[in-house]
Write a protein that binds this DNA or RNA. Structure first.
Length: 930
RNA sequence: GGUCGAAUGGUGGAAUUGGUAGACACGAGGGACUUAAAAUCCCUUGGCCAGUGAUGGCUGUGCGGGUUCGAUUCCCGCUUCGACUACCA
């Protein structure tokens, strides 16, 4: 037999498929293990070598767990809704469903060639009605629920309505958009519409009038995590702020639980930290300021309660409702002009242009601690969405307030002993308080902070605020509710109709509500979303259906639950399947989803958990972030105004323009000149200045993209080296978690290993070398060294070092001329997770009838690694000088004595005194001399 | 600006978490086989110095300090580069 990877891989991929070897069923007699990859969006460009990196890593783990006897669920599917297919549809008229199916089949073809152990019978596609049925269903459940803050969990909204009928809002402690107060009789007197409007304030999925990121070019709103650097993540179009009526999910209600849950899961600390920052818990105080000559009170949130004595002005966000109430007649024109100017600015302009701007409202607030009158301003540096949309400004100790005060010449009053605020504010949270209050007022002051540290002052002030009724201690979260409507076609339709201007849920037996056909994928002339073009987009009773669709994260929030029971027509997931698979044990994917998908999915899961639809509070127990694969671009250097190209080492002698060259016609940075000439017509007659007969290209690490000609297709690698080599090389490249450029240089080394492995079984002529001899101690030691190393490395996801271990092992066995069946059999099992095709082929060549996937991971036996003698490195003052061997159980004292008496030691000890001898077991003897 | 991480040969990267730095691989150089090439195999390969030579010495993990018998690893201070986030009060 010759190693013909093409035939072998094709054959086994077919057999695995025919024999359904990777299909799993719930099996209570076995322990489960659930491995999951973040499912891909099937883009038109297909896979490049970077995409499968995480899939390979998790596949190795899944196969390893299976060999250990676990019942492993390793599914795959597609996140099939998305903007690119829709943009393509707008341009070409091609229905996004068609584009999506084409792209999926191309993805599948590419994935199949790599030899994954996916159970494709469980495939899900978010755009499949059988799947989005449950996305719609979950949305309805959220509509029918509210979040009870006392119990920190979701409950049916009907309970809340019943409570209102009995007690009104008294004692209600629920997440809401706006704190309401009414009595039971007031509730009972409401019309149905009024009651519905009131309940909307509490629902977890609610229709709210909110400030949204509107992208005019895409014609849709975007979630915060879909806006990057002030422009849309997809397409890079400008984004502006706009008030719109939108479906929202009350994610913020779960802030504390999302934060607490992080402690119970095994994610990297950096990812947890990212989520903590995104949730942004901050403890502080809410404090009310009365407005002079008015009944209006301004409430502000601050984490620096200690600085109340330094408040010299107040600022409202332009969008704040208080602006209208506080603007005096004289200031109205100026304020109106300012507000409309801010509204017109795009998110990007707001971010890049940080010029200080603002307008005085004409009103004054009263500092509750000093009774001073302080001016109230409006400025866009205050955000409407955080805290109360109003702040107390302490210019001496906040750099933003400081810049504002300097610009408008407002008072800056330092509160910390010895701080200098002539040039900049003193933001640090350490020091001793002064001027709190100013000395002349100390006598009558209700609160004195002078002399306290900042920390003490914060505590004391909070206490005072609470006791005096000026405000309350408050925890604020940065995490906002998720905007859930998109003015798009290619997404899940909402199972919602409108009656009397109020939304109602379709009855459950009408689910799934399928996406209708439209003539064009553009908004209507009236400005309605594309669904406005659908004919008969009404219920059977004639009520209009919702025109928005759901965002991308809707379908990806509970897909891992659906994989457990993908064909269940009654439920998202049946209780038996859920009880067995529980949650994902290992989730592999990129960090780019840290603040999007990974927050939404946790929220979604916690919600379903509250309602009893899933058994685990957290969806993803362990999470590994695979690094991004960057491109490694190659360049040729054209001498200016010629068609002559000069090799890298000589380019400095000329004036040259670097030009990207296709990395696929470059090998080890050496250009294939003939391929280059054929690459593009204008290079046909190109001439070259070579170094030592070679044209050497320059290189740089860039994003992998078509325009840089650095895209490497896995099909191309598989064609040349085979899937097993691709799999191993991707892992050999470096740690899975690390981002690194793809560099095909070096793949030969791994390919050489695979062929060497084969040559343990067959000689050059294809004759078998396998013998039935008993393995000897040396050989068993080589084998068990490998088992020990690989077992540990796999657990730690350190695949690159496992592969090194395989290379060493095969070299050793070759040196020992070992071809013994029992050694080779075990070796095959350990290799199977990494290179399943060759392992399976050789396994059958050894006469096995069942798949190597169903073998058992070898137990590692310490006995074989035991040595008779141990070599110690003998050092003097930490410098290693010579080595000595001792029987394994020699005592420390014995070693010490022998070493000091040894003739080589005498040379180093000459004229010196021995101060100390340190014996490190099995390693080192260090002799301290002086 | 904030948070987190990283820095080791020509290159990708190892180092049992305080114990012989540079495993493994690529590349490069030399050699064997071959008419030749491919393939395969063997040797050398951090730097500097000495020696015909086996070998020996010094130096070396971004920079500067510290702790320690001993530091790539721990502590303090810098420099540079990434990732995430960004007027969050």
């Amino acid at each position: 037999m010759e190693y013909n990877f093409k035939d072998i891989e094709k054959k086994w991929q077919q057999r695995w498929r025919d024999e359904k070897i990777y299909e799993v069923k719930e099996d209570p007699s076995k322990k489960k293990y659930y491995v999951l990859n973040m499912f891909p969006y099937p883009s038109g460009a297909g896979l490049h070598v970077g995409h499968p990196l995480g899939y390979i890593a998790s596949d190795i783990y899944a196969r390893y767990k299976r060999l250990q006897g676990f019942n492993v669920l390793n599914p795959m599917g597609y996140d099939a809704y998305g903007l690119p297919a829709e943009q393509y549809a707008i341009q070409t008229g091609q229905h996004p469903a068609i584009t999506t199916v084409t792209n999926i089949s191309r993805y599948r073809e590419q994935l199949d060639k790599i030899g994954f152990s996916f159970d494709w019978s469980r495939e899900v596609r978010t755009c499949d009605p059988n799947y989005y049925h449950w996305t719609q269903w979950a949305f309805q459940q959220m509509f029918e629920s509210f979040f009870c803050l006392n119990d920190q969990k979701a409950k049916p909204i009907s309970e809340l309505a019943a409570y209102f009928a009995q007690e009104g809002t008294k004692g209600v402690h629920a997440s809401c958009s706006e704190e309401l107060e009414f009595s039971a009789s007031e509730w009972n007197a409401m019309t149905e519409k009024q009651q519905q409007e009131t309940l909307m304030n509490y629902r977890i999925a609610y229709l709210g009038n909110t400030m949204v990121n509107w992208c005019p070019k895409l014609g849709t709103v975007l979630a915060n995590d879909e806006v990057v650097d002030g422009v849309s993540e997809r397409g890079g179009y400008p984004v502006i702020q706009k008030m719109m009526k939108q479906w929202c999910l009350r994610v913020s209600a779960y802030s504390q639980r999302l934060l607490d849950g992080l402690d119970s899961i095994n994610w990297t600390s950096s990812l947890k930290e990212t989520q903590r920052n995104w949730i942004g818990r901050s403890e502080g105080a809410e404090l009310s300021f009365k407005v002079k000559d008015s009944d209006v009170e301004m409430t502000v949130f601050t984490t620096r309660a200690d600085t109340v004595f330094g408040v010299t002005f107040m600022v409202l966000a332009p969008e704040s409702e208080l602006v209208a109430q506080l603007t005096t007649a004289e200031q109205k024109d100026e304020i109106d002009a300012y507000i409309s100017a801010t509204q017109k600015r795009t998110e990007l302009e707001r971010q890049t242009d940080k010029k200080v701007s603002g307008v005085f409202t004409g009103s004054y607030a009263i500092n509750p601690l000093t009774q001073e009158s302080i001016p109230v301003w409006v400025s866009d540096y205050v955000l409407a969405g955080y805290g109360t949309g109003a702040i107390m400004a302490v210019p001496a100790h906040d750099s933003r307030d400081y810049a504002f005060a300097k610009h408008f010449n407002l008072e800056i009053r330092p509160l910390i002993e010895g701080c200098d605020v002539s040039e900049e504010s003193f933001d640090a949270k350490e020091g001793i308080m002064i001027n709190s209050p100013i000395p002349s007022q100390v006598e009558n002051a209700p609160l004195v902070l002078n002399g306290l540290t900042i920390k003490e002052a914060i505590e004391k002030t909070k206490q005072y605020i609470k006791e005096s009724g000026l405000g309350d201690v408050k925890v604020n979260y940065r995490l906002r509710d998720a905007i859930f409507s998109r003015q798009r076609y290619w997404g899940e339709p909402f199972p919602v109709y409108y009656k009397d201007g109020m939304p109602y849920m379709l009855p459950e037996d009408k689910l799934p509500l399928e996406l209708p056909e439209v003539d064009k994928f553009l908004p209507t002339e009236a400005g309605d979303p594309p669904l406005g073009r659908a004919k008969d987009w009404v219920t059977e009773e004639g009520y209009p259906l919702e025109l928005n669709t759901m965002p991308g994260f809707a379908g990806s929030s509970a897909y891992y639950l659906r994989y457990m029971d993908p064909h269940n027509n009654q439920r998202l997931v049946g209780p038996e399947a859920n009880a067995y698979w529980e949650n994902v044990d290992l989730y592999v994917g990129g960090t780019e989803h840290a603040t999007g998908h990974l927050i939404y999915a946790r929220f979604w899961n916690k919600f379903l958990y509250d309602l009893g639809y899933t058994v685990k509070d957290e969806p993803f127990q362990k999470l590994v972030n695979q690094g991004m694969i960057q491109g490694r671009s190659n360049f040729v250097y054209r001498i200016k105004d010629t068609n002559t190209f000069v090799s890298l080492g000589l380019k400095d002698k000329y004036e040259v323009t670097p030009i990207h060259v296709d990395v696929n016609i470059v090998s080890n940075d050496q250009l294939d000149i003939e391929a280059f000439k054929a690459w593009r017509p204008e290079f046909n007659a190109a001439e070259f200045i070579l170094e030592e007969g070679k044209y050497i290209c320059g290189w740089a690490v860039e994003k992998m993209s078509k325009s840089m000609y650095n895209v490497v297709n896995p099909d191309f690698i598989i064609e040349r080296y085979g899937a097993d080599t691709l799999r191993m090389y991707e892992m050999f490249l470096g740690p899975v978690e690390q981002s690194k450029p793809w560099d095909t240089n070096g793949i030969d080394g791994v390919h050489r290993f695979v062929r060497k492995f084969w040559s343990l079984f067959f000689d050059r002529d294809g004759k078998t070398l396998v013998t039935n001899d008993q393995a000897d101690k040396k050989e068993l030691k080589v084998l068990h060294t490998l088992i020990k190393k690989v077992s540990r490395d796999i657990e730690e996801f350190s695949y690159n070092t496992s592969i090194s271990a395989f290379m060493i092992c095969v070299n050793e066995l070759q040196k020992l001329d070992c071809h013994k069946q029992d050694i080779l059999e075990t070796l095959l099992v350990t290799l199977a997770p990494f290179a399943p095709h060759i392992a399976e082929e050789l396994w059958h060549q050894l006469g096995k009838q069942t798949s190597v996937c169903d073998a058992s991971w070898p137990a590692f036996n310490e006995e074989y690694l035991k040595e008779d003698n141990v070599t110690y490195s003998i050092s003097f003052n930490g410098k290693s000088r010579f080595t000595l061997s001792f029987p394994v159980d020699t005592s420390k004292e014995e070693i010490e004595r022998t070493v000091l008496a040894h003739e080589s030691a005498q040379k180093w000890l000459e004229g010196k005194t021995v101060r100390k001898v340190i014996v490190v077991p099995k390693k080192i003897v260090n002799i301290v001399i002086g």
